[in-house]
């Protein structure tokens, strides 16, 4: 009987753990949605912040977020896919492959503030790119690199061996096989990984603060600085100004990133 009692108690405890996890996360999400919706309007996304309280809209920060994420995206794709192709198709396993993997794992665990520091020291100061979309995009691409590399490599490895043999059997070279057979077959999964990484980049704060700057500016050129939505939300929340706009920014940000992730899931699901 005590065995049954212990069982019932344990299961109740697990039930409570799961319920409170779901409750807290649902609360957070609901809170942001309910408080953020009233702030959203056409002018909120199309107008500039005004006055010391940063009321008005958040248009330039949206531009900066999209811009810097896009730069990171463009920079990371060739490198990450190239590296993954090398690891999955070309490299013989050995010490050097281990070194690359160790480096990628380590990069994945570097705190974002350190990417920010590095970006500041290297791109902003040493290379003289100043606070700019380019510096921000470069730092973000380095942050996205291990994630995209790993998902791409897994996607390539999941392509059945028969596809490759089929291409070789027709006299295809290694690169032809990779480009015409392997990569197309792995494309949906690769895209999924890239979208997930973009979601992370768009939500990043510490990195872009130190590399893209904090200036409220709608960037046009790669050399322009700009404050992203995340940095803007940080300022609004910490200065305690324009709480309404802070909620609006938070909601837009969460909506943007959740739709990235939902889209990635949808891609991943479609493949199956």
């Amino acid at each position: 009987m005590s065995k049954r009692l212990a069982n019932n108690i344990a299961i109740s405890v697990l039930w409570v753990a799961a319920a409170s996890t779901v409750f807290v996360l649902a609360w957070l999400l609901a809170y942001v949605v309910v408080k953020g919706l009233p702030a959203l309007s056409w002018s909120f996304v199309t107008q500039w912040p005004t006055g010391v309280t940063a009321s008005g809209g958040i248009f330039p920060t949206i531009v900066a977020t999209v811009y810097v994420t896009a730069v990171g995206f463009v920079l990371v794709i060739p490198v990450a896919i190239g590296a993954a192709v090398y690891l999955a198709e070309y490299a013989a396993s050995g010490r050097f492959v281990n070194v690359i993997r160790f480096a990628a794992d380590s990069l994945a665990s570097v705190p974002s503030i350190v990417f920010g520091l590095f970006g500041l020291a290297f791109f902003v100061y040493a290379l003289g790119f100043k606070f700019s979309m380019l510096s921000g995009g470069l730092a973000l691409s380095l942050m996205m690199l291990p994630l995209v590399m790993r998902t791409t490599e897994e996607a390539i490895r999941a392509v059945p061996q028969g596809y490759r043999l089929g291409s070789y059997g027709l006299g295809g070279s290694k690169w032809q096989t990779v480009r015409r057979v392997v990569l197309p077959a792995a494309a949906p999964r690769i895209a999924t990984g890239i979208i997930l990484a973009m979601g992370r980049a768009a939500g990043e704060t510490a990195v872009v603060m130190f590399t893209a700057g904090m200036a409220i500016n709608a960037p046009i050129f790669l050399t322009d600085p700009g404050r992203t939505m995340t940095s803007h939300l940080y300022v609004l929340a910490m200065e305690g100004i324009s709480v309404k706009n802070a909620f609006g920014t938070a909601l837009l940000l969460v909506g943007m990133i959740l739709s990235f992730n939902l889209f990635a899931r949808w891609m991943a699901g479609r493949r199956g």
């Binding site: 060739p78 490198v79 990450a80 896919i81 190239g82 590296a83 192709v85 090398y86 690891l87 070309y90 490299a91 070194v99 690359i100 480096a103 990628a104 380590s106 990069l107 570097v110 350190v114 990417f115 520091l117 590095f118 020291a121 290297f122 040493a126 380095l142 690199l145 291990p146 590399m149 070279s173 290694k174 690169w175």
Partner: peptide, 27 residues
Amino acid sequence: KERVLHGLLFASACVAVLGLVLIFAFV
């Protein structure tokens, strides 16, 4: 062409290592 490509892919793979080294070095 294959050699050049091989070299490019290898270089891409090295970016992760290079990035980590640079991060360490500059910080």
